[in-house]
Amino acid sequence: MGVDRRYIFFLLLLSFLGSYVNIPVVQLPPEKLLTPGIVDFFGMQYVIPDGAKRPGTVIAVNLGGAVIPVILSIYLIVRNRLYLRSVLAVGIVTVAVHLMAYPVPGFGIAEPMFIPPLVTAIVALAVSRDHAAPLAYIAGSLGTLIGADLLNLHRIQGLGAPVASIGGAGKFDGIFLTGLIAVLLAGFMSRKRGRSPGSTS
């Protein structure tokens, strides 16, 4: 995939642990916030944090679901020279994820956790079999962030969510699974080519 094998799972672990860190960016005007509770969405349960002390929804950026994936995606694009192919793959995944994204009152924007990884795997293999692994991570990460979060920021106001995290909660599940699929694709393609174990995945 263009990253040393020794660091792949470290990066995935760092991304997982970083999912608990939200970096506040802006606060929306005051509105009625929903009380803490649990929201069911496509079989997944999400906890609504206590927003009693906040006058309005806080827009935040998730460290593990946005910051780390974006940095790694940019590195993979440059490292593998996947400029045009990345634009194509990210565009397709963005459209697919945006169509699936759904506003959840008291929670924010969410989408089925298995959709981004499945769509990404198909798109990555279709666009470039030789670079399927890095494309899977790039398209899954950026496509999910753009399609689910950035294109739906205008829908946050009025949902009554204490915190709306870009790359967090409902989106992090899909982004994290995309990273795992990218690693599996890298291993599969490596074995298919008959290469002996090397230093990169």
Results as ranks from 00 to 15, higher is better:
residue 155 R to A: 04
residue 30 P to G: 01
residue 116 P to D: 02
residue 119 V to G: 06
residue 177 L to A: 13
residue 6 R to T: 15
residue 147 G to C: 05
residue 22 N to W: 09
residue 200 T to L: 11
residue 127 V to P: 01
residue 42 F to D: 14
residue 181 I to C: 03
residue 31 E to C: 00
residue 19 S to H: 08
residue 64 G to I: 03
residue 50 D to Y: 04
residue 61 V to A: 15
residue 91 G to M: 00
residue 76 L to A: 08
residue 175 I to K: 03
residue 18 G to C: 14
residue 82 L to A: 07
residue 161 A to K: 10
residue 161 A to F: 07
residue 142 L to R: 07
residue 141 S to G: 10
residue 34 L to H: 14
residue 110 A to S: 09
residue 92 I to A: 03
residue 129 R to L: 01
residue 87 V to M: 13
residue 179 G to V: 15
residue 166 I to F: 10
residue 168 G to I: 06
residue 39 V to F: 06
residue 64 G to R: 05
residue 100 M to D: 13
residue 135 L to M: 06
residue 178 T to N: 14
residue 72 L to F: 04
residue 82 L to V: 10
residue 11 L to V: 13
residue 115 I to L: 15
residue 186 A to G: 15
residue 4 D to E: 15
residue 73 S to A: 05
residue 111 E to G: 08
residue 134 P to E: 05
residue 100 M to L: 15
residue 38 I to Y: 12
residue 193 R to Q: 11
residue 12 L to M: 11
residue 194 G to D: 12
residue 22 N to V: 09
residue 83 Y to S: 06
residue 96 A to Q: 07
residue 111 E to P: 02
residue 192 K to G: 00
residue 148 A to C: 03
residue 159 L to E: 04
residue 45 Q to T: 13
residue 172 F to I: 00
residue 136 A to D: 00
residue 19 S to C: 05
residue 154 H to L: 01
residue 1 M to P: 14
residue 86 S to H: 13
residue 66 A to M: 05
residue 57 T to Y: 06
residue 61 V to C: 07
residue 83 Y to D: 09
residue 8 I to L: 15
residue 140 G to Y: 07
residue 155 R to K: 09
residue 169 A to W: 06
residue 188 F to S: 07
residue 67 V to L: 13
residue 62 N to R: 09
residue 172 F to T: 02
residue 197 P to M: 05
residue 127 V to D: 08
residue 55 P to L: 02
residue 52 A to F: 11
residue 12 L to S: 01
residue 171 K to D: 14
residue 195 R to Q: 10
residue 42 F to H: 15
residue 55 P to I: 01
residue 81 R to Q: 11
residue 95 V to P: 11
residue 129 R to A: 01
residue 94 T to K: 07
residue 195 R to I: 08
residue 89 A to H: 02
residue 184 L to Y: 03
residue 76 L to H: 10
residue 120 T to G: 01
residue 43 G to T: 12
residue 73 S to I: 08
residue 192 K to C: 02
residue 168 G to T: 11
residue 123 V to A: 02
residue 58 V to H: 02
residue 45 Q to P: 00
residue 76 L to W: 11
residue 30 P to K: 07
residue 197 P to F: 11
residue 196 S to H: 14
residue 131 H to G: 00
residue 88 L to D: 04
residue 78 V to P: 00
residue 122 I to M: 13
residue 147 G to T: 04
residue 6 R to C: 08
residue 144 T to Q: 10
residue 183 V to P: 03
residue 145 L to R: 05
residue 158 G to N: 00
residue 162 P to Y: 10
residue 75 Y to K: 02
residue 23 I to C: 01
residue 184 L to G: 06
residue 168 G to F: 06
residue 169 A to P: 04
residue 170 G to K: 10
residue 89 A to N: 03
residue 42 F to Y: 15
residue 124 A to Y: 09
residue 154 H to I: 00
residue 59 I to Y: 09
residue 192 K to A: 06
residue 31 E to M: 04
residue 193 R to M: 07
residue 48 I to Q: 12
residue 107 F to T: 13
residue 156 I to S: 00
residue 49 P to T: 00
residue 136 A to F: 03
residue 69 P to T: 11
residue 114 F to V: 08
residue 119 V to Y: 08
residue 11 L to R: 03
residue 32 K to P: 06
residue 76 L to S: 09
residue 105 P to V: 07
residue 107 F to D: 03
